[in-house]
Computed example of a mutant assay.
Amino acid sequence: MGMMMQSAAGVPVDGFSYGLITPIAAYVVACLGSALGLRCTARALSLKRSERAGWLFLGSLAIGTGIFTMHFLAMMGFTARNIEIQYDLLLTFASLGVAVLVVGVGIFLVGYKGRTTAALLSGGVITGLGVAAMHYLGMASMRMPGSIEYDVKIVLLSIGIAVFAATAALWFAMSVRLVSAAIGAALIMGVAVSGMHYTAMEAVAVHVHSGAAQQGGTSAISTLTPILIGPVLLLLFVGLFVSLDPMMERDGKREWGTRPGEGSGEKLEWTPFER
Rank of each mutant, 00 (worst) to 15 (best):
T218S: 05
S180F: 09
S210Y: 15
R259D: 15
L233F: 08
L224P: 01
I183T: 11
V191Y: 10
V238I: 11
T167E: 07
G263F: 11
M247V: 14
G217R: 01
V206R: 01
T223Q: 10
L235K: 00
E249L: 14
T218M: 09
A162I: 04
I188R: 14
H207L: 06
M201N: 03
V163W: 07
A200V: 01
G217Q: 03
M189F: 07
S222N: 14
T199W: 04
G252I: 13
F241W: 14
A205Q: 08
I227C: 05
V204P: 07
S194Q: 12
V163Q: 09
V242S: 08
G257T: 09
G252S: 12
A173V: 02
P246R: 06
G184T: 02
G257H: 06
V193F: 11
G263L: 08
F241C: 14
G230W: 00
G217K: 02
A169Y: 05
G190P: 01
G239C: 06
V208P: 06
M201P: 03
P260A: 10
A182W: 06
S194C: 15
V176Y: 13
V163T: 10
G230T: 00
V176N: 13
A168I: 06
A168E: 05
G239Q: 04
V176S: 14
L187Q: 09
L224V: 05
E255C: 02
E262W: 06
T167A: 11
A166Q: 08
V238W: 01
A166F: 05
A205M: 09
E249F: 12
P246H: 04
G184P: 01
R250S: 12
P260Y: 07
G160W: 03
S243R: 13
P260H: 05
L178D: 15
L234K: 02
Q215D: 14
M196W: 02
L234F: 05
G184L: 04
A212N: 08
G216D: 13
I188Y: 13
L178K: 15
F172I: 05
E262A: 07
A162M: 09
H197R: 05
W171P: 02
I188G: 10
E249S: 14
G195N: 11
G257A: 10
V206G: 01
Y198F: 11
W171Q: 09
A200Q: 02
R177W: 01
A173E: 00
V176G: 12
S219M: 07
S264F: 15
G184S: 05
